[in-house]
């Protein structure tokens, strides 16, 4: 399958007073046309920064993309001149953020914000753009779409605003949508509505999606392939089923064990990952997870952090990853 997007060895650092923060450190991933992948990890693991680096929205300074390639549709986005990059952003690649209020202009009607994009990217005239906007708002399930198009962002609820963001994202028929925690600020019933909507839209329009989230349940419902990030690196990736049922990195094992599940009998005690995420300014030698790892063994400091194929299409950076958790537990 031809990849729509290939990120290779992407490295983005932030230069702060406390030192150089390796927010994203040699990250590679790929998305096929029409495919949905998920980047999972906890705050500060670099999942958002890696996605913002793709579309070059890293604030500089303090951030800087130090190296890597982002091959999209045959071109390296990191080498594109700024004005061509602007056409890619919002045109071929659309973004949906956690808090729609920050990405909507409060003094423009929601309709105007969509027609503006249509006029810019699709060269439509005003009337056509408005008609298209109403059609899009209907498509994302906004009732009374032609009236809603004339209202301002603050008149809408959080769920409705996120629907507007989705309408805006799909307005230019993008090939890729980057959705950064799109449902985190919303309630579960609204989250369920929106995930259903995003799934049907991606299916109908053939759009590829990168879903960035910390919620393991959302990933399970939504994504086919999963990349797990920890401390700026991808520590494990593979088909969702394989990663969830046979995790080969102790961090993934820990994450899955630490969330209570509604479909299983209630445990008397949760099994958290002890300790705190590491300080990205001063990472330990070798594996960044070693201090919290319950399968730590003497060899962990000296290991190179390359992704090893542990089963077809399933990779882990843990040097003991071929063993799996049963064997880890024995040692």
């Amino acid at each position: 399958m031809a990849d729509l997007l290939q990120v290779r060895d992407l490295t983005t650092h932030f230069f702060t007073r406390d030192g150089e923060v390796g927010a994203v450190d040699g990250v590679s991933y790929s998305v096929a046309a029409g495919e949905t992948i998920a980047l999972v990890g906890e705050s500060g693991c670099g999942k958002t920064v890696s996605a913002l680096s793709i579309v070059r929205l890293i604030p500089e300074p303090p951030g800087r993309i130090l190296s890597g390639k982002v091959l999209f549709d045959g071109a390296d986005l990191l080498q594109l001149p700024a004005d061509e990059m602007r056409l890619v952003r919002g045109g071929k690649i659309a973004m949906i953020f956690q808090e729609p209020m920050t990405s909507l202009n409060p003094v423009l009607t929601v309709g105007r914000q969509i027609t503006e994009a249509l006029e810019l990217h699709q060269h439509m005239n005003r009337q056509d753009a408005f008609r298209e906007t109403v059609r899009l708002l209907k498509l994302v399930g906004i009732p009374n779409a032609d009236q809603r198009a004339r209202s301002y962002p603050h008149h809408l609820s959080g769920g409705m605003r996120q629907r507007v963001m989705i309408a805006m994202a799909i307005s230019c028929k993008p090939k890729l949508i980057i959705a950064d925690e799109p449902t985190t600020a919303l309630d579960v019933t609204i989250q369920a509505q929106l995930l259903e909507l995003m799934r049907s839209i991606a299916r109908d329009l053939g759009t590829a999606t990168i879903l960035i989230t910390h919620n393991l349940g959302v990933v399970a419902r939504y994504a086919r392939r999963v990349y797990v990030m920890y401390a700026g690196k991808i520590v494990e990736h593979g088909p969702a089923l394989a990663v969830y049922h046979d995790p080969r990195h102790p961090y993934t094992v820990g994450l899955l064990a630490s969330v209570p599940r509604l479909d299983e009998p209630r445990k008397t005690r949760l099994a958290p990952i002890e300790g705190q995420p590491p300080d990205l300014v001063s990472l330990p030698r070798g594996c960044a997870f070693q201090a919290r790892c319950s399968f730590y063994s003497g060899g962990c400091e000296g290991q190179a952090l390359d992704l090893l194929e542990v089963s077809p299409g399933h990779y882990s950076v843990c040097w003991q990853g071929r063993k799996g958790r049963e064997e880890w537990a024995k040692t």
């Binding site: 030192g19 099994a271 002890e274 300790g275 705190q276 590491p278 300080d279 300014v281 001063s282």
Partner: peptide, 14 residues
Amino acid sequence: EAAAPAPVATVTRP
């Protein structure tokens, strides 16, 4: 390990 309070990483920043 499990019963002990969480080990605490030292903050190395100034």
